[in-house]
């Protein structure tokens, strides 16, 4: 590790430490907002780990998230709570592996189509099983407060950043960047493209399931339509795109302003949320295709070339 790596590590730890102090304010509204930011931050960052370098757009976040909430919902009476998020991670990872094996050997379009409807399909199956067994939803009653959920999510965030940092320095991370640039070149260099893609897709799958499992106590009552909301997949893509996927810190830079903006929108225009979400997304795709990261790099490059002239 170089001195720069150490610096970044210490900086990250300090920022997370400061963020962890938020519940001490005792402001319930701020903490609720903090939970949202932490949740979207973790989801968007892990999403970008795979979709950033490969350019394969995953629309399946809601599916894995929903599976995670259902792990908590159905396991809370049987297992101690602390066992559930890891279990959700394993199940989410396996599911992502299966989805990856079925679609990632083929072109990107198949992957997008498959992930587009995955949440809806799992929702149908869960609803069907529930109807067959006769109960519609389930209660998750724990003594966990918003503060606990917040701290748990920050812990996952730390893990995701460490994982992202490690992947960025690994052969796997390098292989994924090559695949994202030119898949044919990648395979002619000796990279097993399918295995690399599936291996990395497991990460956001597992993380989204863990987050779902941790958020479940917040919902208290869980039914398929709340657990598998397609809006979630969409929000995660928007926020990650807004921040930019080229850097590890990109998505969180998109998550914070967007979550705040979203707060304003859902309070002031409760009936137009979907419309405004769609319009925001179009604006980002057209005006900021590389997000804040891209904007930052452009300004940086311009500053550098100016220096060179002087």
């Amino acid at each position: 590790m170089t001195t720069r790596d150490w610096k970044n590590l210490v900086l990250g730890a300090v920022l997370l430490g400061i963020a962890a102090l938020l519940p001490l304010t005792g402001d319930a509204y701020a903490i609720a907002l903090g939970v949202n930011i932490a949740m979207y931050g973790v989801l968007a960052t892990s999403w970008a780990l795979f979709s950033g370098p490969t350019h394969y757009i995953s629309l399946a976040t809601a599916a894995f998230f929903g599976v995670g909430t259902y792990v908590t919902a159905s396991g809370i009476d049987v297992l101690p709570y602390w066992a559930l998020p890891p279990l959700a991670g394993i199940i989410g990872g396996i599911l992502a592996g299966i989805v990856g094996l079925a679609t990632l050997r083929l072109s990107g379009v198949y992957f997008v189509i498959f992930t587009l409807g995955l949440a809806e399909m799992i929702r149908q199956i869960v609803t069907w099983r529930q109807n067959a067994t006769g109960h519609k939803g389930s209660y998750v009653l724990t003594d966990l407060t918003e503060n606990h959920i917040y701290w748990q999510l920050l812990g996952v965030a730390a893990l995701v950043y460490l994982a992202g940092w490690a992947i960025g320095r690994s052969r796997l991370g390098f292989a994924l960047r090559i695949i994202g640039d030119d898949e044919q070149v990648a395979s002619h260099l000796g990279i097993n493209t399918a295995v690399s893609k599936v291996a990395l897709f497991i990460v956001p799958g597992a993380v989204a399931a863990i987050v779902g499992a941790m958020i479940a106590p917040r919902y208290i009552y869980i039914e398929p339509s709340t657990a598998f909301t397609p809006m979630l997949s969409f929000q995660v893509v928007i926020m990650a795109m807004l921040g930019g996927t080229g850097r590890l810190w990109g998505p969180i830079v998109g998550v914070i302003p967007f979550t705040l903006l979203w707060e304003v929108i859902s309070v002031s225009f409760p009936n137009q949320t979907t419309l405004l979400l769609g319009l925001c997304f179009l604006l980002i795709v057209y005006l900021l295709p590389n997000g804040f990261v891209g904007l930052f790099q452009k300004i940086h490059a311009r500053a550098l070339s100016k220096e060179a002239y002087q």
Binding site: R177, I178, D181, D182, V185, S187, H188, G190, N192
Partner: peptide, 21 residues
């Protein structure tokens, strides 16, 4: 192709293919 590359066959392409990013 990946297996053949590992065994020791490397190539260039008719139309140059670099990794643009």
């Amino acid at each position: 192709a990946r297996e053949i590359a590992r065994r020791g066959v490397a190539r260039t392409f008719q139309l140059v293919r670099l990794l643009p990013s």
